[in-house]
Amino acid sequence: MAEQGKQKPVRWLNPASGYLTGYAYTLNPYIGCTFGCSYCYVRRMPLALFRGSPWGEWVEPKRFDGDSFRREWRRAIAKGGLTVFMSSATDPYQPAEHAERLTRRVLEAMAEELPQFLLVQTRSPLVLRDIDLLRRFGERVRVSMTVETDLEAVRKELTPSAPPLAARLRAIRELRLAGIPVQAAISPLLPCSEAFPALIAAAVDRVVVDDLFRGDGSGGKRSAQLQMAERYRALGAESLYAPETADRFVEELRRHMPANSVYFGQEGFLP
């Protein structure tokens, strides 16, 4: 009989599926996310729908046991082809990470026995804190920094709790200077200025673009449920709420950047 009150070990590596089928696993250090972006597809998943509190107003750090994590990690390495997407349903560098240092502890353990590839998906300059660890991964890591627009007014309306855009662009530049592979994730593309393609091209040498239709995991249904068309209308940008907007943006971006440096959708996130 199991000992009363004994907690089950936390499972860290979950088989990737759907949009992330190019990875072996996803890894989410937190449950919930206080950035609470208006367009986030997780809002329409059971994790958020049945919580009882609005998405963006809560976060739970997973219980980290170094020995348990390392055992799970080594088993995955032994199987071969260990590729990890961190994170698919939260931001590993959201405000809670300042105190919890959970993502850092996970990276420390990973760095002892490197995976084949790790993608770190974030929108937070806090990732700069861990440059010392990320350097240990060499070419086996890529930081993917979300920068959906160059207009602070749009950010404040659609993602008010997310870090300022200038801070994210500065983080991209500092990661590059530190030799860390990095890309800008214009995902999803939000209303922006005509200068945005040139701005991004000057900041980074790899970009992935996605939109609210092909990138929400449901062909645009989740975005519709989240009333994104109405949000665009409130911004006076209703005419931009169409897949063609992202297509035009990609074309313009490719005029500013070398061949094979601009990707669209799933391809740009693959190892």
Rank of each mutant, 00 (worst) to 15 (best):
L49D: 09
L240D: 04
F117L: 06
A229T: 04
S88T: 11
M45P: 04
P188G: 00
W58G: 07
P181F: 00
Q7S: 15
A203I: 06
V127K: 03
M1E: 13
F137S: 06
D91Y: 08
L20K: 06
T149W: 10
Y232K: 00
T34E: 09
E238K: 05
S261V: 08
Y19L: 12
T34H: 05
L199K: 15
L253S: 02
A237E: 13
L128R: 05
S144N: 04
E238V: 08
P92N: 09
Q116S: 11
E108P: 05
I200L: 15
Q7G: 07
L177M: 11
S223H: 06
A242Q: 06
K62F: 07
R170Q: 11
A89C: 13
I200Y: 00
G66P: 01
A24R: 14
A185I: 04
E3C: 12
T159V: 11
T21L: 15
V141Y: 01
E230K: 12
Q94M: 12
H98R: 14
G179I: 04
V208K: 02
A184Q: 01
G56V: 03
S187V: 07
A224P: 03
D67H: 12
M110Y: 07
S261Y: 05
T21R: 15
G36Y: 02
R176Q: 13
S218N: 06
R140S: 12
S144F: 00
Y19G: 03
L158M: 11
P92Y: 08
S261R: 15
L118C: 02
L107H: 12
D216P: 00
